[in-house]
Amino acid sequence: MVDFGDHVDDATFSQILEMDEDSHDFSMPLVSNFFEQADETFEQMDAAVESKDLSELSKLGHFLKGSSATLGFTKIKDNCQIIQQYGSNLNVDGSAEPDEDVCLRRIKDALAAVKVDKAELEKKMKKFFELEK
């Protein structure tokens, strides 16, 4: 079994795997769909950063947070949370961050990080499903 490290919450992800009936007929397409979805969302996020649209970034962060959390993809979820928070002019601890430039900068950082996370995880997942096949 591939070690996902802190990328994945095993308890959550194993629940998904339990749903598989024949090999990974459920989880594999689900995961690959998620990565597609993540890529699409990243593109939209890039565009929103370009246009400095914080509320759109918050919405997108929330969106991807939901699916990554349900899959147990912890690292991605955490960075999405950060994007969502700063998109709402809030620091991670919930205090207000009125400076939009600060918010945007933090979002850029989190977006860069989440892209890396996603790439790493995708590699691990591919390997995982290869091995399990």
Binding site: F63, G66, S67
Partner: peptide
């Protein structure tokens, strides 16, 4: 609204 969540939720329920 989220495809992934919907699929997982549906799966859990049909399970």
């Amino acid at each position: 609204d989220d495809k992934t969540c919907a699929r997982i939720g549906s799966k859990f329920l049909s399970n």
